[in-house]
């Protein structure tokens, strides 16, 4: 008897559990369906919005930034894929086009700056190169950074070097810059001059002379820095990419 009743109880329990599970799945499915519906509506709306304001997004730099910010906050990258509905927007195309032009400018100025260019110079040259057409005029530094980030897929041949105070350099030569090299560029940029000396670096960064010299030698070897032996006390290391006359030169 005990045994029989035991089986019944277990079976009953099992049945209940199954019922609960079924209910759970049902609820889950409902929620999922609702979510899918919501996402679908959202997607449609976003798509509508984006295609409606496609030109505005392309033309108006502020609008474009707000749009990409909005996308970022909901975890969508309109640049990420050339497929799907994002491709109809041509947002990705805008940045890819920009990226190609960035490469062109970098190649064209490589002979004088050794493959290191400030974001501001890059922007000035790009706007010149893109011509006077109205829809091409507004390119912000944020746009350039977004586009340049896309170029990372080419490996370390292309990278962005932050040099403090919101300034950036774009490096377009193979051979990654280490933290030390970036720090050297930062110091040169922060000093407001286009040069840096070994003693200044040692003082500002509290580095050993050996470490400083190694970093500077590397910059010279990469063609990024030029030596000046006619400074007042010691050798000065100059960076054409930070030198104003070089930046504004029409060449």
């Amino acid at each position: 008897m005990r045994r029989k009743a035991g089986v019944g109880a277990i079976q009953k329990q099992k049945l209940e559990q199954e019922k609960y599970r079924d209910k759970g799945t049902e609820i889950q499915e409902n929620q999922f369906e609702q979510m899918t519906k919501q996402m679908e509506t959202f997607r449609v709306n976003l798509e509508e919005f984006a295609s409606k304001y496609k030109n505005e997004i392309k033309k108006n730099a502020r609008f474009r930034r707000q749009f990409t910010e909005m996308c970022a906050s909901i975890g969508v990258d309109p640049l990420a894929s050339g497929k799907g509905f994002w491709s109809v927007l041509g947002i990705g195309d805008f940045y890819y086009e920009l990226a190609v032009q960035i490469v062109e400018v970098c190649m064209a100025t490589n002979y004088k700056n050794g493959g290191l260019i400030s974001l501001d110079e890059l922007r000035t040259r790009l706007i010149q190169a893109r011509g006077r057409r109205k829809e091409h005029q507004e390119i912000t530094n944020e746009d350039l950074l977004a586009a340049a980030k896309k170029l990372r897929i080419f490996g370390n041949g292309f990278s962005i070097v932050p040099i403090g105070r919101g300034k950036h350099l774009v490096q377009s030569v193979p051979g990654e810059l280490s933290m030390d090299h970036t720090a050297v560029l930062q110091q040169a940029s922060l000093s407001g001059n286009a040069y840096i000396s070994k003693s200044t670096l040692c003082k500002e960064l509290k580095w050993e002379p050996g470490r400083t010299q190694k970093a500077l030698d590397h910059m010279v070897k990469e063609g990024l820095a030029w030596l000046d032996e006619q400074g007042e006390n010691e050798t000065l290391y100059w960076f054409p990419s930070l030198f104003t006359a070089c930046i504004v030169s029409k060449e």
């Binding site: 063609g223 030029w226 000046d228 100059w238 070089c246 504004v248």
Partner: peptide, 24 residues
């Protein structure tokens, strides 16, 4: 004058071969 003329290291012979080629 080209920009190099006001670039002080232009007046120091550059040790790195690529840079020196550009300088010359």
């Amino acid at each position: 004058w080209p920009w190099q003329y006001s670039f002080p290291p232009f007046f120091t012979l550059q040790p790195h071969s690529d840079t020196r080629a550009k300088q010359l």
